[in-house]
Design a protein around this nucleic acid. Structure first.
Lengths: 219, 219
DNA sequence: CAGGCCCCTTCAGGCTGCCGTCAGCTTCGC
DNA sequence: GCGAAGCTGACGGCAGCCTGAAGGGGCCTG
């Protein structure tokens, strides 16, 4: 992942650069907005870390210009300004996240990871399970290459099994997972949803353990 | 590369003209907006350098008119106004960059080079999605070859889906994207904007996943 | 400064289809 | 063969969604 760091404080900049490099990402570090403008003009970045107070202008303006030109690269703002109004202005200008100095470098790593996961141009990780291809982030399932539509409840149920492959889940456990714990389910709802899931995903997908519950079938 | 310089200060204008010529580009220099209008009407420029205070009107007005007529030539604003509001107005009006006077001629060269690299004479990359052609940089959409006008919110929403094609986006996620995170949206704003987008771009463009959110439809 | 215009939000009414329920049937264990 | 547990088709209620219309605010114009 290619990251552009725009930060004029040399101490902080170097620390951030080293942290990112330690995470295995590549960094370009500039200290002025005009350098930053050239950089985004000539290179395609996956993420921009932007200081708000720079020697040749406000980072906000740079960010707005970026967005006005249709650039959708995710931007995380780094700034000493901790007032809510600045934060709102930054987010309104199109920032994706915000870090107030002084911040923990580990936290920075976490945010970078989060943004990267959310936006990386790469496709989401796909879990395969027999004839099924499951994209958890996109909430989509394909069966033999054909998309399958799952409803909200069906997803919740399916997710519960995917989270614990092979593990036996009792009906009370599943009800707890599907409903706010105060909801009263006085019927065979789980059975019905299991039935619908089997119809959509294949009858082998869920195995019944009579009297005990269900478990995800072997692929 | 062919550059149009709109500047009424003869000293500065001559200096800029000479600098650009020294960089090996060709320049047309006009001092009034009506002349500028004639020039863009008769010649195709790769870049426009625009002063904001001119004897026969505001440069902003000229720029807006240009964009309204669908002209997407990159524009760099040259101005003595150093207030943030003016810069933002310029960028919102469709400028690609700005330079506050007095500026270094070397910096001007760098910006020109940057813009040139960004556009490299070629039209912007076009994303096609079924009957839609989307120019992210110019923020324009064509449907079956006809231009479609999107408002700010509509574009922001559309962009969110384009950034992650096929991914399910929940309403809270979309609200987060459209509004500062502390804004309270107590109504069905997202639904309304989705509805408008469908009306403008075609009903199949966004698919509803009841209880979960929306996703970009297959082309 | 009034007036117009456009965009955004909110609201209300109508519609869709998901979900819980039930009943009748099948399967399983003993 | 019997009872208990599970399966599944059918159906009505209602949450969630759609959309036309109205009102307010910002921006530009005369």
């Amino acid at each position: 992942m290619r990251i552009l760091l725009i930060e004029d404080d040399t101490t902080l900049g170097a620390a951030v650069r080293d942290q990112i490099a330690a995470d295995g990402q590549s960094v370009d570090w500039v200290t002025r907005l005009d350098e930053a403008g050239d950089a985004v003009g000539s290179t395609s970045y996956d993420l921009i870390l932007l200081d708000l107070m720079l020697p040749d202008g406000r980072g906000i303006t740079f960010l707005k210009g970026l967005r006005t030109r249709g650039n959708v690269t995710p931007v995380i703002i780094l700034t000493a300004l901790d007032q809510v109004s600045d934060r709102i202005e930054g987010l309104n200008a199109g920032a994706d996240d915000y870090l107030v100095k002084p911040f923990d470098l580990a936290e920075l790593s976490a945010r970078i990871g989060s943004v990267a996961r959310r936006y990386s141009g790469n496709p989401n990780p796909i879990v395969t399970h027999g004839p099924l291809e499951i994209d958890l982030a996109a909430r989509s399932v394909h069966r033999d290459g054909k998309p399958v539509q799952l409803t909200a409840r069906e997803w919740a149920l399916f997710e519960a099994f995917l989270a614990r492959p092979g593990q036996l889940l009792s009906k009370p456990q599943l009800e707890e997972k599907l409903y706010a714990f105060d909801a009263e389910v006085e019927s065979n709802t789980i059975e019905v949803h299991v039935s619908r899931l089997r119809k959509k995903l294949g009858s082998a997908i869920l195995e019944t353990e009579r009297g005990l519950g269900y478990r995800l079938g072997r692929p």
